[in-house]
């Protein structure tokens, strides 16, 4: 994978979405610098799945890799959307949180270490329920500390997207990179339809779903920082660009007055055309190159 990368710029583009979590992580690194930590042969499996008749995976659906990006030490954590919907269990959650904490400890020692999270997840793994929820709270705490030192970059490439509690983790990231095939939201359409009725959200309306949660919309309304094509090289360049940019002056999740006033300005008596929010919100947001 990594040997091929430098050529892809010149030959055909390589789909990023078609790569599995391990391949996605590896392709982001400077060629030949990445090493996987707590990989499948370390067999840190979920202790809770087998007892519920669900086959575990040897890496619990979370790949941790360390190496160099743009010559700088970086840790990449990638969730495997194909395993249990990328859901957060005890082990996968701890891998993510611990990797962020280790990066943080290195930064505190003066060893600059960036972090990239590849989130493809529906949120809490229901077979591990309260431990999954607790681990998301811990991941969020870890992001909050680490992003003081270095940018914490979140990539949502698709096709699972990023939902549930993990959408809050994405909300804490320094930068969010999405593709048009990715979605970002707290509650998926099915859950809203089941909870609040089909009049509130018709989960069979694909156009509506993409209009609300899709990467193009999230970028256009300023809730994501870059929209890239489904192309590994473009993804690499986006990560390099945000590493170079460093920690933002103010994180989006700390812009409370701005977003509170935006919510206050909305007319709650009706549903909104998502496009309305693009015009209303994008103004004033830092411009970012749309590759």
């Amino acid at each position: 994978m990594s040997e091929q990368r430098n050529d892809t710029k010149f030959i055909n583009r390589q789909s990023f979405i078609e790569l599995n979590a391990r391949e996605r992580a590896e392709v982001l690194f400077d060629a030949g610098t990445s090493r996987e930590l707590a990989g499948p042969f370390d067999r840190m499996e979920s202790p809770w799945l087998a007892m519920q008749g669900v086959t575990p995976q040897a890496d619990d659906g979370c790949v941790v890799m360390k190496g160099k990006i743009s010559g700088q030490s970086t840790v990449v954590i990638a969730l495997e959307g194909a395993f249990q919907g990328g859901s957060m269990g005890e082990v996968s959650g701890e891998k993510l949180a611990a990797a962020l904490d280790l990066a943080c400890a290195d930064n505190e020692k003066g060893i600059r270490t960036n972090a990239v999270m590849l989130l493809e997840t529906g949120g809490v793994r229901l077979q591990e329920a309260n431990l999954g929820l607790a681990s998301i709270a811990e991941i969020m705490a870890s992001i909050l500390v680490l992003r003081r030192h270095v940018p914490v970059i979140c990539i949502i490439a698709g096709t699972v997207g990023c939902f549930g509690g993990m959408s809050l983790a994405a909300g804490l990231a320094s930068y969010v990179v999405m593709t048009r095939e990715a979605r970002l939201g707290m509650n998926g359409p099915e859950v809203i339809e089941q909870t609040s009725g089909v009049d509130e959200f018709d989960s069979s309306d694909r156009a509506l779903i993409w209009a609300i949660h899709g990467g193009e919309q999230r970028f256009a309304m300023g809730l994501a920082d870059a929209l890239v094509e489904d192309d590994a090289q473009q993804m690499v360049e986006a990560v390099q660009r945000f590493i170079a940019k460093g920690v933002p002056a103010v994180h989006r999740s700390s812009e409370v007055a701005l977003y509170r006033s935006r919510i206050a300005a909305l007319d709650p008596s009706r549903q909104w055309d998502p496009k309305e929010l693009r015009a209303a919100w994008k103004a004033g947001a830092a411009p970012e190159v749309n590759q």
Binding site: N20, G39, P40, F41, P56, Q57, A58, E80, F83
Partner: peptide, 18 residues
């Protein structure tokens, strides 16, 4: 050499060879 392929996704499997 060791080898790891696949994912425990619907209709798929993971193989660890050592």
């Amino acid at each position: 050499k060791k080898a790891h392929v696949g994912v425990v996704g619907s209709g798929d499997l993971e193989v660890l060879l050592e």
